[in-house]
Nucleic acid binder design. Structure first.
Lengths: 235, 235
DNA sequence: TGACAATGTTACTGACCGGTACGTATACAC
DNA sequence: GTGTATACGTACCGGTCAGTAACATTGTCA
């Protein structure tokens, strides 16, 4: 029932380029053709190419992110992964369990993106946060942006006991804490409030970014600067 | 195919107390019991109680808002409405069409709530926006809050051609325009930017409000004041 | 009273969905 | 080589879903 295999491969936060899966030896390229028939995945585990479970994770990551979890059936996931349904249910107890694994992978990837926005580390917390928001808001106004997978999951699954939602909820709690921490490091007069302000702004970017291109995310960086400057200024 | 009956009864924005439907003569009370069997709705249109289509709208509004559109089947909608499936399909071409109607109803209700927050009109645009955010953020930290139905629909339906999404997208465009307008009336130096800042904040409230109670929405009113004051101040 | 509009009743369809029973191929141990 | 564990596929199941067909029933209004 509660199998819960451990995550070792982060899911995609950016829409395209989802497949990665550097777990197994091989490094087969997998361009996003709806149903690759050329170069069929050699079955029965012969050393080249990722295992079924990893292919499923990658397939689920891409499909769940782009179309939503509820909208995607397990058949579509396994088809895209080039495996069969029993392979899915050997590694995951249920679709809900797969969705939870997707959430964990997504979260791991999120923290990479957040802690090193644009691939760079930042010593200054202010520059750190602004860099993240800059990268984020650029992505958010691009075509096909679908927001934060974790946020979207809380919208798709309002029930508290849903496994995917639980991962997402826990993450959001952590994220809030981290932002407050960074606000404190900035020297904010009210770190909790500045952290919350930044969180509201960031979640606003996530969600408006998928409502339309040319959305309000354009203004986000300026707003973030304003919030931070107002929050750390001497009274 | 594209029937699209006109809306005349707004959907609920607050979670509880969804049924209203003042269209027909009667005003039967409808407390939210999962499957009211007492006082069965007198069928065949006898003058008391709302028509089938209205009951369906009300039922859909409550269920779609609380559980999400995809999560609710048409059977559940008609069961709760106390009508039968053919009645649904006599008034709505498809579930998608019903969802679009739900969106239109929701939007009508939204504008009422937005233009008269707490039931009051405001001459001062600053007080107007702040009043809305005050009412909103209070609701957003309450148990069972589910955010904005229109926003949620854009998350549930990423495909641009989905009828419900189209209503939601159009609404968000209008809402952005309205906020920029109010920002201009406040005397903002950059009305477009202040409007966007407020939009990002409000959408942030919607979405974080359903992630947890005690969320960052607590700080929203203070943040809004800060944004407005910074945006209208003399340079 | 009779036509009509609105609704209910029953039963059905075909597609899809999550999930599984069971057989099969490969790799490795000995 | 044979045994065994592992990784995978084939084929299927029962349930649910959106949507429909055909007909019965009731109230309204002319």
């Amino acid at each position: 029932m509660a199998a819960m295999k451990k995550s070792d491969e982060p899911a995609a936060e950016r829409p395209a380029k989802a497949f990665s899966s550097e777990v197994a030896t091989g490094s087969r390229k997998e361009n996003a053709s709806k149903q690759e028939s050329g170069a069929p995945f050699r079955s029965h585990r012969n050393g080249t190419g990722p295992r079924a479970a990893d292919r499923i994770r990658a397939s689920a990551a891409e499909l769940f992110y782009r179309e939503g979890i509820r909208a995607v059936g397990v058949d579509e996931v396994v088809d895209r992964a080039g495996v069969t349904k029993p392979s899915l249910y050997r590694s995951f107890a249920s679709k809900d369990d797969l969705a939870a694994a997707y959430m964990r992978d997504y979260e791991a990837n999120f923290w990479e993106n957040f802690e090193k926005p644009g691939g760079k580390s930042y010593a200054d917390p202010r520059e750190h946060v602004l860099a993240y928001i800059k990268v984020l808001s650029a992505r958010a106004v691009a075509t096909g942006y679908r927001g934060c997978g974790l946020t979207n999951a809380t919208v798709e699954y309002p029930a508290r006991d849903n496994p995917a939602r639980q991962v997402a909820e826990a993450h959001k709690k952590l994220f809030r804490k981290r932002l407050r921490e960074l606000a404190a490091l900035m020297g904010a007069r009210h770190p909790a409030m500045l952290g919350d302000a930044l969180l509201l702004l960031i979640e606003g970017i996530y969600v408006t970014g998928q409502q339309s291109e040319e959305g309000p995310a354009q203004s986000a960086l300026t707003v973030a600067r304003l919030l931070i400057d107002a929050g750390v200024a001497k009274p």
